[in-house]
Amino acid sequence: MLAKSLVIFIGVGILSGFFYGIYLIDIKDPNQLEYEIGPSLSVLTEKSDYKKGEQIKIRIVNSGTVPLIFSDASYGLRVTGLSGMLMYSPTSTQVISTLEPYEEVEFVWDQIKNDGDAALEGLYKIHAGGIDDQGSKIERSIPINIWK
């Protein structure tokens, strides 16, 4: 027979795990778009876990109220490994690009790295960065997983 205190501790642990799980699912969704007053940039994907070889749709959104300026037509998009090593960046021309408030652009990464090899399974970060109207750097990144 189990001790009364053991049953209470297990019950409290199960309940707290359940409520914390609901909090993480409902409140802490990394792909949820939130608009802010002032400069803000959001990088979004459809999901955070992808199968190897699956296309990854990446949305870069000006989620603020001021225009953002980018130094090239790729809007500062780059995919890196956890170590920061560059895996992929779209080929683009050196043209100044502007993203107006609430405007977005979409890119698709086919999981092919810049050297032509397929991306391996693992954790990657998708970055985008620009400059606001005051000259301050704005950069955001999100993690994604690639599985077999």
Rank of each mutant, 00 (worst) to 15 (best):
F19L: 15
D110V: 04
P143Y: 09
V43T: 05
K28P: 00
E46F: 02
Y50I: 00
V43K: 06
L123Q: 14
F19M: 09
L86A: 04
K4F: 09
K52M: 07
I112Y: 13
V12L: 15
K137V: 06
G135N: 11
I144Q: 08
D72L: 04
F9T: 05
V105I: 15
A128C: 07
D133P: 08
V61G: 02
G129L: 05
Q134H: 12
W147R: 13
D26C: 08
S97K: 14
T91L: 11
D117C: 06
T98P: 12
K137E: 07
S5D: 15
V108T: 15
L123H: 12
S92N: 13
W109M: 05
T91R: 10
E46V: 04
L123T: 13
E46P: 02
I138Y: 04
G21T: 08
Y88S: 02
F107R: 13
Q94F: 07
I10M: 13
M1K: 11
T98N: 10
Y20L: 10
S83V: 09
M1S: 15
D115A: 05
I10K: 12
K137F: 09
L99F: 03
D49R: 08
Q134C: 00
I14H: 09
G38H: 05
E121L: 07
E139G: 02
I10S: 14
I25T: 11
E46C: 00
E121S: 12
Y102N: 13
Y35G: 00
L77I: 01
L120G: 11
E36F: 12
L15S: 10
Q134G: 01
G81W: 00
I10F: 15
L15G: 09
N114M: 11
L82I: 08
I146Y: 07
V105M: 08
G81L: 14
K57C: 00
Y50Q: 01
Q55C: 00
I126K: 10
P143I: 00
Y102C: 00
L24M: 06
S63G: 01
R78D: 03
L99K: 04
Q134R: 13
D117Y: 07
D110F: 13
D26L: 14
A119H: 08
S89Y: 04
G11D: 05
G84L: 07
T80Q: 11
I144P: 08
A3N: 15
Y124P: 04
L77T: 01
Y35S: 02
K51N: 12
I131L: 06
V95R: 14
L86N: 06
I22V: 15
L2E: 15
S89R: 14
L6M: 13
G21D: 05
T93A: 10
V12R: 04
P101M: 02
V12N: 02
I144N: 07
F70C: 07
I22K: 13
L82F: 12
M1F: 12
K28T: 03
P67S: 03
A73Y: 02
E104L: 10
P143H: 07
F70T: 04
E36I: 02
G53E: 09
G76E: 06
I37T: 04
P39T: 00
V12P: 03
I126A: 06
G129T: 03
T65C: 03
I126S: 07
E100L: 06
I27M: 10
E121R: 12
G122N: 07
I96W: 01
I14G: 03
E46I: 02
P39F: 01
D110K: 12
S136I: 05
G81H: 02
I69P: 00
P39C: 00
